[in-house]
Amino acid sequence: MTPDGLPIRILLAKLGFDGHDRGLKVIARSLRDAGCEVVYLGLRQTTESVVIAAEQEDVAVIGISMHNAGHLTLGPMMVQAVADAGLDIPVIIGGIVPAADVPTLKAAGIFDVLGPGTPLETVVATVHAAAAAHPGSSV
């Protein structure tokens, strides 16, 4: 919930060819059960399709799942696409990201990186923190 009692809206998507969506679906259910409204965009999205959906759906947070080692390219591209659209929406990356790459991603503007084995409570807490840290993205 946001401070005014409304559900947090979060968009979940994967970029490109990669079809590993087990984690994304587990996270979707987990956030639903934590009271969030999950706009599920699923597989084979582009940074542009994510941005358009984020605008129309007015989500507070964008979650991108990565399993194809493209995070160092696609992560910063996603952040840039959000900024180019003039949006203030935090981007969280989940999936297989080596710990060594996390500082690079954070420096590029990724709000947080949730690696393999992250407890579901931590995922939910991170989404709440991201929504709270960007009040411009909620009413």
Binding site: R22, V26, R29, S30, G117, P119, L120
Partner: peptide
């Protein structure tokens, strides 16, 4: 996909609640 995703979620919840242990993770 619904059956598979439900099963995956059930397992993750069991790990989260401590019903199942993944050594080195939970």
């Amino acid at each position: 996909v619904g059956e598979i995703a439900d099963a995956a979620y059930r397992f993750e919840r069991e790990v989260t609640t401590g019903e199942r242990i993944i050594v080195g993770v939970s």
